Amino acid sequence: MVSIKDIAKKAGVSISTVSYALNGSPKVTKETSERIQAIAKELNYIPSAAARSLKKRETKIIGIYLTNYSGAFYGELLQGMMETLSKNGYELIVCSGKESHRFLPERMIDGAIILDATYETEELLSHAERGHKLVVMDRRMDHPNISQVLLDNKAGATLAIDHLAEKGHRKIYVLKGPEISFDARQRLEAVQKAVQRYSQVEYIELDGDFNKPSGEAAAKKIHQEFSEPVGVFCLNDEMAIGMYNYFSRTNLRIGEDVHIIGFDNIEVSQYIQPRLATINYSKHKWGSLASELLINLIKKKKPEHERINVSLIEGDSVRNR
């Protein structure tokens, strides 16, 4: 690999002169700088990103840490992040797994956005203590180097239960999410509180994992127990779509026998029939705001705690009992 020593030797100048020229320093004349740039191009010189970031103490790269890449959830979220970062001169990389945790302490990225339940809070705090800038989207944290932007999960879950109850449903299943998920825990807590207001409602919890197979498994159990029309709140849309898949192979009809509401309003929700009732929020705005808060931290502004509002989208998957 060609180094600046090779360029300096061919140009007949010092290594420091080559460094100044390649970094656009006014310490070298325009003529010398152009000659050195031409030699670098001729030798196919590629500057070391690691060395450059150590010198400038920045990479202009932000990492988003995700638990996994499955499902239809992440597209709009990442697009919102990318657009905001791009406007501010940053690029985005998607990270997952333990090996990528070294990117922060090794300063391979300038900051990180966290939506990864497997990233331990203690480890994040240790990074923050060392001055690294973070935005968390999946937990509450209080630190001068950490901002947070969270969904209003509790309001959304309450809207869903109220909608089913107001439509006259007296038997309500709730399909839970993975226990490791902050959003799933928040939604379930709100559900458990909301159903207490409806003494006439029979409330049943089913295990789920935020994916279609767990939705199908839960639908099978509901089918086996079916004796009257029921309401179902799936804590995300992926599981609701899994239920659609299962019930399409049975004599039970969604919106007539089984009334389903989801959470997330992913794109496919508006195209399936009957249209899925769900809890909506702007994933694009969520991602954009997370990026904005991180840039503010990098600019040494104070940490902020923001919330993303939610709303109910009615659909024919939930009708009057």
Score class of each variant (00 low, 15 high):
186 Q>A: 15
9 K>I: 06
73 F>K: 07
301 K>R: 13
106 E>H: 13
97 G>L: 06
37 Q>T: 15
100 S>P: 00
228 E>P: 06
79 Q>S: 11
190 A>T: 09
217 A>K: 14
44 N>S: 14
289 L>F: 01
175 L>E: 00
35 R>T: 05
58 E>D: 05
17 T>G: 04
167 K>V: 02
264 D>S: 14
81 M>I: 13
190 A>Y: 00
212 K>M: 15
183 D>W: 00
268 V>A: 06
77 L>D: 05
258 V>P: 00
109 I>E: 03
48 S>G: 06
281 Y>K: 10
79 Q>H: 12
51 A>W: 10
211 N>S: 13
115 L>S: 13
287 G>I: 03
128 A>Q: 01
241 I>S: 04
310 V>I: 07
253 R>M: 13
316 D>N: 13
292 E>N: 09
258 V>A: 08
300 K>M: 09
91 E>R: 14
285 K>T: 13
77 L>I: 10
204 I>K: 09
159 L>V: 06
171 K>F: 11
49 A>T: 12
137 M>F: 04
312 L>W: 03
284 H>W: 13
219 A>F: 07
285 K>W: 11
157 A>F: 10
247 F>R: 02
179 E>T: 12
273 Q>G: 09
149 V>K: 08
320 N>D: 15
152 D>K: 10
148 Q>M: 14
92 L>E: 00
65 Y>T: 01
317 S>Y: 06
252 L>M: 11
70 S>K: 12
241 I>G: 03
187 R>P: 00
194 A>K: 04
130 R>G: 07
266 I>Y: 01
24 G>I: 09
252 L>N: 01
252 L>F: 04
242 G>L: 01
187 R>I: 10
81 M>E: 03
311 S>E: 08
76 E>N: 11
282 S>H: 06
261 I>K: 07
9 K>D: 11
14 S>Y: 09
96 S>R: 10
164 L>R: 00
160 A>T: 03
226 F>S: 09
317 S>M: 00
11 A>W: 05
143 H>S: 04
37 Q>F: 00
268 V>T: 08
302 K>E: 14
34 E>M: 11
311 S>G: 10
210 F>A: 10
39 I>K: 01
246 Y>G: 02
297 L>T: 00
